[in-house]
């Protein structure tokens, strides 16, 4: 069963057609990679999933419900979390607080006036956040201010924040961009482990083919705003259309 279904999505910015008749289906419990050359429209497509952009035409359905016109926080409350290309974390707060906030959001909804309760006494939230930090190997950095973390750790923290909400769909925008090989392998291992244990559906935008072919169970190739191929990883390698998209006419 597909958890995310994108049909005939079009989006233009002025005269530039960023997305043209995009169709995409993400199956539940799988890791689905979206690849393509720079400017193919990958990030635009992702922005259409989370309420940052509204497509001109077409539909985006999540679990049978339309995501169009919904606010980012409403979409998150439906079960979609997003990891950004440059880590978006709460830089002034401690690592622990960073993970507690999504736990509160999951439990209490988009707004609750919990001014009389005490963070100290929220045992279930604290335990969940601690467990999450153990899962991503960051428990020793619990009291550090998030902005002082290394870049790789910021990424890992953002992933922990998203995962602590136990989302039905996790969107990752180049989760390993700018990482050293060792960190990349750590991330691959972390994502594989999570998928194995929690069966969270993931949609990944990625340039690094090592990451894509290590993780993806299905791959969509986007070029010039349209999906040119959607297939299993083994059929993508060496596919003539993909070669053409990446290397241009010269490949023929």
């Amino acid at each position: 069963m597909s958890i995310l279904e994108v049909q005939n999505v079009n989006k233009s910015f002025g005269g530039l057609k960023a997305l043209q008749n995009v169709n995409l289906k993400v199956e539940e419990g799988t890791i689905h990679a979206i690849i393509g050359p720079n400017g193919a429209g990958k990030s635009t497509l992702l922005n259409c999933f989370v309420g940052k952009l509204i497509p001109d035409t077409g539909s985006v359905m999540f679990n049978g419900q339309s995501l169009l016109g919904k606010k980012p926080y409403e979409i998150n409350q439906m079960g979609v979390s997003r990891v950004f290309q440059t880590p978006e974390i709460f830089g002034d707060l401690s690592v622990f607080e960073n993970v507690m906030i999504p736990c509160f959001a999951k439990r209490d909804g988009a707004f609750r006036m919990h001014a009389i309760e005490r963070v100290e006494r929220e045992v279930d939230i604290r335990e969940a956040a601690e467990q999450m930090l153990i899962d991503v190997d960051m428990i020793d950095k619990k009291h550090m201010i998030a902005s002082s973390l290394s870049r790789g750790d910021k990424r890992r923290l953002e992933m922990a924040m998203c995962l602590s909400q136990n989302p039905q769909l996790l969107l990752l925008d180049e989760p390993t961009a700018g990482m050293a090989r060792a960190d990349t392998n750590n991330t691959i291992e972390l994502l594989a482990r999570i998928q194995d244990r929690r069966h969270i559906t993931m949609a990944i935008i990625e340039h690094d083919m090592h990451v894509v072919f290590s993780l993806a169970q299905k791959i969509s190739v986007l070029a010039q705003g349209t999906v040119i191929v959607e297939d299993l990883p083994e059929n993508i390698k060496g596919h003539p259309k993909v070669k053409e998209a990446y290397l241009g006419e010269a490949a023929e």
């Binding site: 606010k71 979390s81 978006e88 002034d92 707060l93 906030i101 309760e117």
Partner: peptide, 30 residues
């Protein structure tokens, strides 16, 4: 009490990163 409450934590989150806040399922406006 407000400083030590989850509400106070959310207010500090508003100052720190509103974008992350809304993608975390929280509505910063109220």
């Amino acid at each position: 009490r407000i400083f030590r409450s989850p509400f106070g934590l959310m207010l500090r989150a508003v100052k720190s990163n509103q974008q992350r806040m809304s993608y975390t399922g929280l509505n910063p406006k109220p």
